[in-house]
């Protein structure tokens, strides 16, 4: 873990509100790990580490002025990382993601034998290199199809509603994992703000995760 600056290389629009930002520099990290990026706001924001076109990259969903600044205005980004626990699994896996995790998916492809399915609510404007479905109905159909294939493990990374839908479909499987997003301030275990309720009590997404087993999470 260290502090560094990243120089923006390219920006690509993925869909209505999500962009890929690639960088000139590279850092060593494992799939699932993330970094915290400074914005004009008061708290750094976490982004899953990944690749695009062979370059270090993050996917950014524009939610407000901070994420908009990252995509449209910044040239150099202060950051610290890599943070969190890496996720590397043997066997054949299925990765079900929203467009906000597409760069992370390329990191998974680098380390693991994994099929990637992207579910987007709005039309995708870019060839992501993965099977992509648009709309809730299409995603549900694809989810059922993926469930029938019986992969060694599944990992879901997306919105809370996407996670819930996937858990309902996949909870009978042996190994189902979720890469969680929680509001996070430090990313290093100091502030305790990224608490999430699990069946083993409070856990912290930054130090205990970000990847958790589905059966350990509280779904109610």
């Amino acid at each position: 873990m260290e502090r560094f600056c990243l120089t923006k290389r390219d920006v690509f629009r993925v869909n209505e509100d999500t962009w890929i930002v690639s960088f000139e520099e590279t850092i060593d990290f494992l799939p699932g790990q993330f970094l915290m990026v400074e914005t004009p706001k008061l708290v750094r924001k976490p982004f899953a580490l990944g690749y695009w076109g062979g370059h270090l990259a993050i996917s950014v969903q524009i939610k407000g002025v901070g994420t908009s600044w990252i995509v449209h205005e910044s040239k150099r980004l202060k950051a610290h990382g890599p943070l969190g626990n890496g996720f590397v699994k043997p066997g054949k896996g299925a990765l079900l993601i929203s467009p906000t995790c597409v760069t992370m998916a390329w990191a998974f492809k680098k380390f693991m034998d994994v099929d990637v399915i992207v579910g987007s609510r709005t039309p995708v404007l870019l060839d992501l290199g993965f099977e992509t479905v648009v709309g809730d109905e299409a995603f549900l159909e694809k989810l059922r199809e993926v469930s029938r294939k019986d992969y060694d493990w599944y990992l879901v990374a997306g919105s809370r509603s996407m996670e819930k839908v996937c858990w309902e479909e996949l909870k009978g499987k042996r190994e189902v994992y979720f890469s969680l997003e929680e509001y996070m301030a430090c990313g290093i275990g100091a502030c305790k703000s990224c608490a999430t309720l699990t069946n083993f009590g409070i856990k912290h997404v930054c130090t205990d995760g970000p990847v958790f087993r589905g059966e350990d999470l509280c779904w109610s």
């Binding site: 708290v43 509001y183 608490a195 309720l197 009590g201 409070i202």
Partner: peptide
């Protein structure tokens, strides 16, 4: 164990 989430929010000039 601390308080249940959410545990933090921010505005323009405050946390």
């Amino acid at each position: 164990g601390g308080n249940p989430p959410p545990r933090m929010a921010e505005g323009p000039f405050f946390l």
